[in-house]
Structures are given as structure tokens and as C-alpha cells.
């Protein structure tokens, strides 16, 4: 794939929607490579880092954040029209982020909870991923993204190579680091078996359970493109680790709670919770 025609530097645009800025900061955290990236790319639009704000088109658009307002529903379409390659960065952009917890709540009561004048606040009832609104070419998962993974993908694009972004589970990275399994040894409800790696198994390496920052892994049993076996893991949490249904719901309903397979699992356990309360 030829990224840009001729000798021109590829034009980069970095766009923010509802988010914490942590994934954009991960770009600036490439301390050793930032100036080289600045030389290899024409940074045409990156408000967090530069006052220069050039209109499109952009060869590469990095999109952080989720869609939570009507205005942003329109803005993402405009970004897509201006972008040759659009890559979403981080859990907000790829799955709606932690703010997607509103998807299971009443937005009216949320506004009342935070703002004395809820009538001043205009927001959608849901927080949704960028792919729910426009075609996305590549997704970089994580909360935040792994900066080295970003660097690799951008380098691949610059070299005209199609980037490969692995979605194997955290367990593989954890074993490679030689960690003792926190589920087996400490009885922690670790989401590692169903969560995509890319972080380097940070949490188990720090003595705790994975909480799903990189979203659902792709099926270990059935292969690429299939959802992970969340049902089996959830049952283990319940049967062996003693989590009650609401604990299981909360476990899957976190940073990537609105990602399809995590959402289905938490909703299934929300039903079990209701049934057990009813009986």
C-alpha cells in the first residue's frame, strides 16, 4: 500500500472526542522518537501539541475519544471525509470508554447527579465507538494505548506495510514474562484470559488482576475474529472465586464495558442477578 504519492511528507491529523487525553499524551510520551516523527510526518492538525491547525485532507487521522454529543456525531463524519487512513486510538474510540457506563443508566439522572443546572447540558444518552459512526481502517486498543504499538503501526504505514495488530490474550504475554498466575495463586478475578494483550501483562506483573484495558481478545479456542470465552471465565469467577452476580457484572462492565463480548457477558449476569433477587 502506498501511503502517499511522491516525495511529499504524509499529513497527520490528531482528533479528540470524549476522552481523558491519555492516548494523545502517549504520542508525546514517545520522548526518544517524537522529534523523528515530527520530521517524518507533516503534523497538520494536533491541537494538544501545536497551534498550527491546517484543514484536511489528512493522510493519517488518529482519533481519540468516543461519540457522546450530536455535534461530535457530525464532526467524526467530517474527519472521516478528510482522512485517507483513519485509525482509532484507545478504549474510548474503539469501544466507547468508561463513559459508556451511561449506556446502562438514565442520562437524565446522571445530569442531575453532576450538574446543578442539568438543562444547560447537551449530551447523548449513549457513549459509542467511532466505528459505530464511520468506517475505521485500523484500531489500536488500550486504556491508554501502548506507545510502542503506536510507533510500530505508524512506522509500518510510513514504510508502506500493512500493520498487523495482534489480539492474543494477556495470558500469553503474562506467561512470556514468567509471572505466577494471579487467578491460580491468589484467587483474583483476572480478566487476562479474555482480554487482548498489547500492554505486556502490566497488571499481573504488578501483583494484581487484569481489568480489561485492551478490550476483548480474539477467540483463543476458535481463532481470529471469534469472541473470547467470557461465559466460561465468568462462571469460574462465580463458582470458584465466590463472586456474586453483581460482582461479575461490574467486572465486565468497566473500561471496555461496551465492547460487544464484554457487554453481552455483563448483561447476562445482570439477568441472573435479577432472577436470583426475584426467587
Amino acid at each position: 500500500m502506498s501511503f502517499v504519492e511522491g516525495q511529499r511528507k504524509p499529513r497527520l491529523g490528531v482528533f479528540k472526542f470524549a476522552s481523558c487525553d491519555g492516548c494523545q499524551l502517549s504520542v508525546l510520551n514517545l520522548e526518544d522518537e517524537l522529534l523523528l516523527l515530527g520530521a517524518a510526518l507533516d503534523i497538520a492538525y494536533f491541537p494538544e501539541a501545536s497551534s498550527r491547525m491546517e484543514p484536511g485532507p489528512y493522510d493519517l487521522a488518529l482519533v481519540e475519544g468516543s461519540i457522546t454529543t450530536e455535534e461530535d456525531e457530525h464532526r467524526i463524519k467530517a474527519v472521516r471525509e478528510q482522512a485517507k487512513v483513519l485509525m482509532t486510538i484507545g478504549a474510548c474510540a474503539t469501544a466507547g470508554g468508561i463513559q459508556a457506563l451511561r449506556n446502562w443508566a438514565d442520562i437524565g439522572s446522571y445530569k442531575q447527579c453532576v450538574y446543578p443546572r442539568p438543562d444547560f447540558i447537551r449530551t447523548l444518552a449513549t457513549s459509542t465507538s467511532i466505528a459505530d459512526h464511520v468506517k475505521v481502517d485500523y484500531e489500536l486498543r488500550g486504556c491508554p494505548i501502548d506507545k510502542d504499538q503506536l510507533l510500530r503501526v505508524v512506522t509500518d504505514l510510513l514504510a508502506g506495510v500493512r500493520p498487523r495488530i495482534p489480539a492474543d490474550s494477556v495470558c500469553l504475554e503474562c506467561k512470556r514474562r514468567g509471572n505466577v498466575c494471579v487467578v491460580v495463586a491468589k484467587g483474583m478475578p483476572c480478566l487476562g484470559p479474555v482480554t487482548s494483550g498489547g500492554c505486556g501483562a502490566i497488571c499481573p506483573s504488578m501483583g494484581r488482576d487484569c481489568y480489561g484495558c485492551f478490550g476483548p481478545a480474539e477467540g483463543m479456542a476458535k481463532g481470529v475474529g471469534y469472541p473470547p470465552n467470557t461465559a466460561s471465565l465468568a462462571k469460574q469467577f462465580h463458582d470458584r472465586l465466590g463472586l456474586i452476580p453483581i460482582d461479575v457484572v461490574r467486572r465486565f462492565r468497566g473500561i471496555n464495558g461496551a465492547a460487544a463480548s464484554f457487554r453481552r457477558e455483563s448483561e447476562a449476569w445482570a439477568v441472573k442477578r435479577t432472577n436470583s433477587e426475584g426467587s
Binding site: 457522546t68 468508561i98 446522571y110 445530569k111 447527579c113 481489568y211
Partner: peptide
């Protein structure tokens, strides 16, 4: 900046989840 309602969705979460949530 679109509102994200942290103070609302913290309600009902367990105290040990709070450091991971508020970091965001």
C-alpha cells in the same frame, strides 16, 4: 469538552475499583 459523568457512574461501584476509574 463533552461531559463524562464520573461522579454519577461511580455510584454503586466497589471502593477498590475507584483508583482505576478516577484515573480516567
Amino acid at each position: 469538552e463533552p461531559p463524562r459523568f464520573f461522579e454519577a457512574f461511580l455510584q454503586g461501584r466497589h471502593y477498590d475499583e475507584v483508583p482505576d476509574i478516577v484515573a480516567r
